[in-house]
C-alpha cells in the first residue's frame, strides 16, 4: 500500500493540474483565460511524460565514462525527454498564434467575452 501511494501520488497532482486547465477552457468565458487554461493543460501533459521517464537511482541521460553504457537502469529514459523538448517550444509558438488570433478578434469586435462574441456574430454574419 505504501509503495502504491509513493509511486502514484504524483499522477493525482498531474491529473488535478490537467483538470484545472480543462476547467479554464470550459468554464471561463474570456478568451485570454481560455488560452491560459490551454497552457496549464499542456504543462500537465509535459510533466506527465517527464515523470513517466524517471527511474530510481538513475542519472541524466548523458554518458558518464565512470558508469559505462551497458547498464540501462543507470540512466533515465531519454525518449520522453526528447519528445517533450520539442513540445515545449512548439507550445510557445502555438500560443503566439492564439494571441495573434485574439488580437484580430479584438480589433474587429472590440470584445473578448464568448457570449458577447456569439451575439455579435449572430447580428453580423459577415
Amino acid at each position: 500500500m505504501r509503495d502504491f501511494l509513493v509511486g502514484h501520488y504524483f499522477y493525482w497532482f498531474i491529473f488535478l493540474l490537467m483538470t484545472i486547465g480543462l476547467a479554464g477552457i470550459i468554464l471561463k468565458r474570456n478568451l485570454i483565460k481560455k488560452v491560459i487554461g490551454m497552457s496549464i493543460l499542456q504543462v500537465a501533459i509535459i510533466l506527465f511524460f517527464v515523470a513517466s521517464a524517471s527511474k530510481w537511482d538513475a542519472t541524466v541521460p548523458i554518458l558518464d565514462p565512470a558508469l559505462g553504457a551497458a547498464d540501462v537502469t543507470k540512466y533515465i529514459n531519454p525518449l520522453p525527454h526528447c519528445l517533450m523538448l520539442t513540445a515545449i517550444v512548439v507550445g510557445v509558438a502555438t500560443s503566439g498564434v492564439a494571441f495573434a488570433l485574439i488580437i484580430m478578434i479584438w480589433r474587429r469586435f472590440r470584445t473578448l467575452d464568448e457570449n458577447e462574441l456569439l451575439e455579435k456574430l449572430k447580428h453580423d454574419p459577415d
Binding site: G7, Y11, W12, F15, A53, S54, K55, A58, N77, P80
Partner: peptide
C-alpha cells in the same frame, strides 16, 4: 492511474 506503473520503476514496460 491505478493501473499505471510506479514512478521510477526501472522494470515498467516503457523503461
Amino acid at each position: 492511474a491505478t493501473g499505471f506503473p510506479n514512478r521510477g520503476d526501472a522494470l515498467s514496460v516503457t523503461n
